[in-house]
Design a protein around this nucleic acid. Structure first.
Lengths: 144, 144
DNA sequence: ATGATAATGATAATTATTATCATTATAAGG
DNA sequence: CCTTATAATGATAATAATTATCATTATCAT
């Protein structure tokens, strides 16, 4: 099944918080890790229920929250209302370029930006925890 | 009452779209422009209703949408669920540093970032239209 | 002044997410 | 292996922000 490392991280996270293991969480986590694109809670729910039709929405949301806390996933507020989730472990930090017409999403990395952000935060007396940098525009398909 | 320039921009925007002037929209716009902080739709609704208690929520949302289209206001998705709006006209472009504990928000400007963003977009075949750059952390009051 | 239609306000509908709670499952200790 | 405390689940109600609907009113070009 792979994802051994992620499983270990999640297991020790669960143990540290005095929580318990569950089959449903494992299934949700497996689907989440296996799927490379950014998923909404609803999409994840649909895919997971193909394997296990008895899983409910609440468990999807609860598990996504735990995965986020464990550092295995990141919430994205791409368009507006709906939250999407992406893998975080074993990935260099990256940001997003989104087409406002077709929704196409490109990831990019600018390593220097990290230091700049730290500097801005520090100058204002903040301890940086997180950030969001999203560029919106029209992709090549949508400009012609 | 000032804000002559903004009024002019909005008037010609309305005219160009073959829409009509309305007293309510003018009141909402005046309050919006007069208030310096980032407002949510609810906050704007409350303030506007002190002057005109008959204005409804729908008109607030409709007017904010028009102001955005006219380039006079920008939508911010600061925390998560709730949208806030800020002035856009006659302001240098700026981004936000937000305290995840108390909600305090600091604006900052990094002029060089604009060119970098353009470059990233162009390299990926995108025409840049907009962006969002938000840093999250703990402010000095919330770290001690 | 009039007529076409844009704008309004009250409220229902929608959408994403969270809370509630009775039932079930987990795992530590005897 | 059995018991037991309690975490986890799933169904569903609740919430919260925003949008749609629609009858009534207001605007403005003629």
């Amino acid at each position: 099944m792979a994802f051994e490392e992620e499983r270990k991280i999640f297991s020790s996270f669960i143990r540290n918080k005095n929580l318990r293991h569950s089959e449903q969480r494992q299934q949700i986590m497996d689907v989440f890790l296996k799927t490379e694109r950014h998923l909404s809670a609803e999409e994840l729910y649909d895919i997971v229920r193909e394997k296990n039709p008895s899983i409910g929405y609440a468990t999807i949301y609860r598990t996504l929250k735990l995965l986020s806390e464990a550092g295995l996933c990141r919430e994205l507020q791409a368009d507006g209302r709906i939250t999407r989730y992406e893998h975080l472990h074993n990935r260099d930090h990256h940001d997003h370029l989104v087409c406002t017409e077709c929704g196409k999403m490109v990831e990019f990395e600018i390593p220097e930006i990290e230091a700049l952000q730290e500097k801005i935060a520090r100058k204002n007396g903040f301890v940086l925890k997180n950030h969001r940098w999203e560029l919106y525009g029209l992709c090549s398909d949508c400009t012609r």
